[in-house]
Nucleic acid binder design. Structure first.
Length: 284
DNA sequence: ATGGCTGTTATCCG
DNA sequence: CCGGATAACAGCCA
């Protein structure tokens, strides 16, 4: 489930594994993966580059590249996992999994992008980062920053939180989780979230995201994709690691189960064609 | 087995 | 302009 925390954890792990390696060969097997750029231009731009760092912006993994002289400005390789994108790291000789969308031969290792539903994206065109909202975990993300993001919209606050141009990186799961912890109804009109409530939502959002990163960072990761205990993480989790992960979610996917605070049954409600989970008693 | 659901987002309508 | 619906796609589950 690639939302901000999952991409952050992935980026931190890949940073350690990929830094200093050279991109020797790029094989895009599913052209639609590369947008908005031709697969050819993407491959040509990437081949020969050396990976300097791996980071994150919103739900994008950002691979900073160097190593080729005379190519002008710094280049960034952007990866969006969509719903089901995964990055697998392994032997060059291993057989490729089904739904392999792209293969990257790096020095000493092979990186494979697998994506059954094909919502993932890759590009070297960083205009896709334009228009993204503030990073909720940056120090300059203050309660006023969130207040500004919620202002001037009659949309439900839950829907607003999913708008990447307002706050970057929040997805369907953490939007529900943050609103639950802030005791705020997902149906509340965004421009009617009041001062004290903004403060609660601000801290709840940061807590939820930070906790997820902390927990994700301590999990044993399975970069080869061999593990079967893989239902949650885009790049695969070592077996058995998924259990504690789900327990951490307090409302998401708990329809009909008792609220952990008041005991009332958790409800599911469709907003903007996505499921929202909430407690009808605790969240007003 | 059929249909409803799924972590995302660009684009199309009214 | 705004906001809701849809499409892109495959897999899983009841």
């Amino acid at each position: 489930m690639p939302e901000l925390p999952e991409v952050e954890v992935l980026a931190r792990h890949l940073h350690a594994h990929l830094c200093g390696r050279r991109v020797e060969e790029v094989d895009v097997r599913r052209g639609r993966l590369v947008r908005p750029q031709t697969p050819r231009a993407f491959a040509v731009g990437l081949e020969g580059a050396v990976i300097e760092s791996v980071g994150r912006r919103a739900k994008y993994m950002v691979v900073q590249l160097g190593g080729r002289r005379g190519t002008g400005a710094s280049r960034r390789w952007l990866v969006h996992l969509g719903m089901t994108g995964r990055l697998l790291l392994g032997e060059t000789s291993a057989p490729l999994p089904s739904h392999t969308a792209a293969v990257f031969k790096l020095t000493g290792v092979r990186l494979v992008f697998v994506d059954p539903r094909g919502f993932g994206r890759m590009t070297m065109d960083d205009t896709v980062l334009e228009g993204l909202g503030p990073e909720p975990l940056e120090p300059d993300f203050r309660p006023e920053t969130l207040a500004h993001a919620l202002r001037d919209s009659r949309q439900a606050v839950k829907v607003r939180l999913l708008d990447q141009s307002r706050v970057a990186g929040v997805g369907n799961i953490y939007a529900s989780e943050a609103l639950f912890r802030a005791r705020l109804s997902p149906k509340r009109r965004s421009d009617r979230v009041r001062g004290a409530e903004v403060e609660r939502l601000w801290s709840a959002l940061r807590e939820v995201l930070e906790e997820a990163i902390r927990l994700g960072s301590t999990l044993p990761l399975d970069f080869t994709g061999d593990g079967t205990g893989d239902g949650l993480f885009y790049h695969g989790l070592a077996e058995g690691a998924a259990a504690g992960y789900e327990e951490r979610l307090r409302v998401y996917d708990r329809e009909g189960e008792p609220c952990l605070v008041c005991g009332r049954a958790i409800r599911r409600w469709i907003q903007a064609a996505r499921s929202t989970y909430y407690c009808p008693v605790c969240q007003r």
